[in-house]
């Protein structure tokens, strides 16, 4: 085919800078949406645990929306849809400061909050009711039993699924490219268009994604083993 590989061309100067900027944006989206998503997930789980039908329904609707609509469309809804709700002045300002990344973080965080709250919920549900009974019969209050007996088990049971969601989120940050966030895959495509070095540009981006994914997988297997809850 006569194609000469030239990784050097992509791995220096302006292109190297673009890749590093892209990686930085990827990590910003990943870390912020992970933290926000996890905190929201805990809040949603608590709300759903309270026996009050209207709020339980709202949380269930929130979860089902995020599970049954493609993540890309959730990004579009925020990026295209939310803007029209805001006054023009706010929009102009948001465009100036590069609000795409903010929309991406919000959309991904809400999506992960929905999935992670389901993981917490199924963790909670797989604890045998006798554990609560045993905790109460020691003399612990409901809150004490939750704090010292139920929740420490629930998060361990949910951990493998939460780690799975973490990997999915990391890969999902690439979708932010579709709303113009200059993250890693966006930059890879841009470099490819500028330099016509398809294999180098995509190869380097892919390698970076794999490296970080493998790190997440490796950490996941260590944590899952370390905190595994073995029940007879």
């Amino acid at each position: 085919m006569g194609y000469q590989f030239d990784f050097g061309k992509v791995l220096q100067g302006e292109y190297l800078e673009l890749i590093l900027e892209g990686l930085q944006a990827t990590m910003v989206v990943f870390v912020f949406s992970w933290i926000i998503g996890l905190v929201l997930a805990v809040v949603l789980t608590v709300i759903r645990a309270i026996e009050f039908k209207p709020t339980q329904f709202l949380v269930a609707a929130f979860v089902e929306y995020h599970r049954n609509v493609p993540m890309l469309i959730q990004l579009f809804v925020w990026y295209f849809g939310f803007a029209v709700v805001l006054p023009d002045a706010v929009n102009d300002y948001l465009n100036d400061i590069g609000a795409e990344i903010g929309y991406a973080i919000v959309a991904l965080a809400l999506n992960k909050a929905a999935y992670m709250s389901e993981d917490f919920r199924s963790g909670l549900r797989s604890i045998h009711p006798a554990q609560m009974e045993a905790a109460r019969s020691i003399g612990l209050t409901y809150l004490g039993a939750m704090t010292w007996v139920i929740l420490p088990q629930a998060w361990r049971l949910a951990l493998p699924a939460l780690l799975g969601q973490t990997l999915i989120l990391f890969k999902g940050t690439s979708l932010a490219a579709a709303i113009g966030v200059a993250e890693l895959s966006y930059q890879a495509r841009y470099i490819e268009e500028q330099s016509f070095r398809i294999f180098e540009a995509y190869g380097i981006a892919t390698a970076i994604y794999m490296l970080i994914s493998f790190a997440i997988m490796w950490l996941s297997s260590i944590l899952s083993k370390r905190y595994e809850l073995r029940v007879k």
Partner: peptide, 14 residues
């Protein structure tokens, strides 16, 4: 003030 022991032990696995 009452010790209670269950058939299924109900130890806390964590």
């Amino acid at each position: 003030g009452i010790g209670f022991v269950f058939q299924q032990f109900n130890l806390f696995p964590h």
